[in-house]
């Protein structure tokens, strides 16, 4: 591995260690800050349960990311990643391992966490829900488009300039396809999970948390798809042995980069963490206030 790769791996490890410590020491404060992000208040009777669930979810994400970092670094070292080749695909592979680890752990936590069965009165939604209620099109369709763009870029690059494409770039695109299949299966499984709730507040919080889990899972195919596409295109562009392909790759990489930037800006502007609120709790969203405890 190059010094740059070691530096990035070290920095990521440091960030993850700090994240785990912060998750372990913060309690009710983290619930309230998340409540502001998702547009919900924190009823007193739910605070301890929510704090435990949010801590578990965040810890799973952080530890999964750490496991992804360790595994990717180990694979790169054992496979003799060159110590003098600054191939950007290797950096994206390393960061991708972290994202994939977090995404996988988020899915496992969301699918295996046992719901607390409320005693006494039970509430449920009278209408069916869909993936669109939880995921913004930027996340739901964006993940598919990103992976499609990566596969398309790889196909064209292998056709026009096969010698220029590095194995690491091909691996990132393959991982993008695999993570997209996993994403499509995992979000449907999460959607199908029961939502036992004793109050509307409890149900609204469950909606908020499952929406966040789905977005965490979407991060892997989106990242791998964009990075895979960029890695392939940059390989061909930098190689320069095929002038026509090189020009095309440079232009396509710029378009992909700008599209990703525009999608990210749109995503921030539309507040995806509150997507569920606008779709499933329109009264609360319209009031612009937090859901009252019930």
């Amino acid at each position: 591995m190059t010094p740059t790769l070691w530096f990035i791996a070290g920095a990521l490890a440091l960030v993850l260690i700090v994240a785990v410590i912060v998750i372990l020491v913060t309690g009710a404060g983290s619930v309230r800050s998340l409540g502001r992000a998702v547009g919900l208040g924190v009823p007193e009777h739910l605070e301890a349960r929510l704090a435990s669930r949010i801590r578990g979810s965040r810890l799973a994400f952080a530890l999964g990311s750490a496991a992804g970092l360790v595994i990717t670094t180990t694979v790169l070292v054992l496979n003799g990643a060159p110590s003098n080749d600054e191939n950007p695909a290797l950096i994206w592979l390393l960061v991708g391992g972290v994202v994939a680890g977090g995404s996988l752990a988020s899915a496992i936590y969301a699918l295996t966490a046992k719901p607390v069965l409320p005693e006494g009165e039970r509430v449920a939604r009278s209408g069916a829900v869909s993936l669109n209620d939880y995921l913004d099109p930027v996340d739901l369709i964006g993940a598919r488009v990103a992976v499609g763009a990566g596969i398309l870029a790889l196909g064209v690059a292998l056709w026009l300039a096969p010698a220029a494409v590095s194995p690491a770039a091909i691996l990132i695109v393959v991982l993008a396809a695999v993570s997209l299949v996993f994403f499509e299966i995992a979000i449907r499984r999460i959607l199908d999970r029961p939502q036992p709730a004793g109050s509307t507040s409890e149900l609204a919080w469950d909606d908020a948390l499952r929406g966040l889990s789905m977005r965490n899972i979407a991060s892997a195919p989106m990242s791998f798809g964009v990075w895979g596409g960029l890695a392939v295109l940059l390989n061909v562009w930098i190689d320069g042995a095929f002038p026509l392909a090189s020009g095309f790759a440079g232009g396509a990489a710029l378009v992909l980069f700008l599209a990703t930037f525009a999608a990210a800006a749109w995503s921030i502007a539309t507040k995806p963490p509150q997507r569920y609120l606008r779709r499933l709790w329109p009264d609360v969203a319209a009031a612009g206030s937090v859901a009252k405890a019930n």
């Binding site: 039970r122 449920a124 009278s126 069916a128 029961p194 036992p196």
Partner: peptide
């Protein structure tokens, strides 16, 4: 669309 029988049964216990 209404929830499926199985889903509503699980939600409401």
């Amino acid at each position: 669309r209404l929830p499926t029988v199985r889903r509503l049964a699980e939600d409401l216990g």
